[in-house]
Design a protein around this nucleic acid. Structure first.
Lengths: 122, 122, 122, 122
DNA sequence: GTGGTCTAGACCACG
DNA sequence: GTGGTCTAGACCACT
């Protein structure tokens, strides 16, 4: 289940679509599998249906899911571009932040620590 | 000189205040130094004076700069909390992004490459 | 309803934020309650929405209210620091004024009269 | 000597004029006595001469001092209205602040404590 | 509907 | 000259 934080500066619809993307990339959601209906998902997440709708529309536009009329949304094959872009975007953000930290004199070691921490905690 | 990108989703006033914070942290702007007047800076950056005003006010509230009436703004000593928060925020963002990348199976090596790239290019 | 006096040297946005603070402290506005939307309040008070916006933002930064995206602002728990500071500020002002009056020879009795007057008129 | 605090929200010229008023009301400055010249006072206080000028002009307008051409400013008899207004203004401020504190439930005793503190410390 | 940002332009107080 | 406040009105993102 995706966690929604209404105070998170990231818009809610993006929290939802990102959450679904991650499930797809992790393999938790597989090709042709159905995702919850807009209404039921909205109810579960306690958000406005419009918000879920918007998230689904975005995913559809980027090619992660597709709509079957009268049936709902199903997962498509992972779009190559989607995966690529996903990684590229995240790398770009990381790069920017690292550059900012480097500018003010942060040592490489501190970052390596951060990374070890993440890749250790399996 | 700070670069303003009106297409950047970050609001302009934040681009300005962040830019100044970085100058302070880098040491380009030093304690007691004056920063450009609201109006002249607005003119240089080609933005509305209100926008610069907002940026300066934010910096003032966070303790980076201080206003002398009729004189303008000057840099204060780097606020400990300011520096701390700055680093913490950036680390948090990096951590989140790294976690997302790890989830989808990115290898540690790829990140180490990214880091080497940044810290090499002196 | 808050009274706005454009001739008051206190800026309008501060009259608004102070008014709301008092409502919160008095208990007229309670936790989780919604406050009027920026636009509607601006209309009622006959001021520009930006002015109300500024007041709300100040209250938010000081921890009195919180914004829910697309929903509006709600009252948070009274921030301890907020209450403390509020009282401290007022006491400081009173102290200064009293000191000034004492210097020019005002008798203690005159002040006690003033106080009785205020605490009597329930 | 008057203490100027450039960070005090009260404008500097007002800090000066208030300081002089207090000296007059206390009796430190007596009728017909000269006050420092604009220039020398500005030098001593480390402020802009315009600022002292403005303070003197205000005092003149309210009848506390008068200018002798070529000689400088001298103290006049304490203007009745001046004294009256001075006290009235301060009382009004105190009253407002007290009312605000009363609204949020401050006890009368707390204020009486404050007053005792001031009138004790001779 | 909600808030958030921005521009253009005016007016004020202060030094 | 400096900053501070305010208005009018536009446009955007989010729910």
């Amino acid at each position: 289940m995706i966690k929604i934080d209404p105070k998170n500066p990231k818009p809610i619809f993006e929290q939802i679509s990102n959450g679904i993307k991650e499930f797809i990339l992790e393999g938790t959601l597989k090709e042709n599998e159905k995702i919850p209906s807009v209404r039921s998902f909205a109810f579960d997440l306690k958000v406005n249906p419009n918000t879920v709708q918007k998230a689904y529309k975005e995913l559809e536009k980027e090619g992660w899911i597709e709509v079957l009329r009268g049936e709902g949304y199903i997962i498509k094959k992972i779009p190559e571009k989607g995966l690529e872009n996903y990684i590229k975007e995240k790398k770009k953000i990381i790069e920017e932040e690292l550059n900012a930290l480097k500018k003010i004199g942060l040592k490489k070691e501190e970052i390596l620590n951060l990374i070890s921490k993440i890749w250790r905690e399996k």
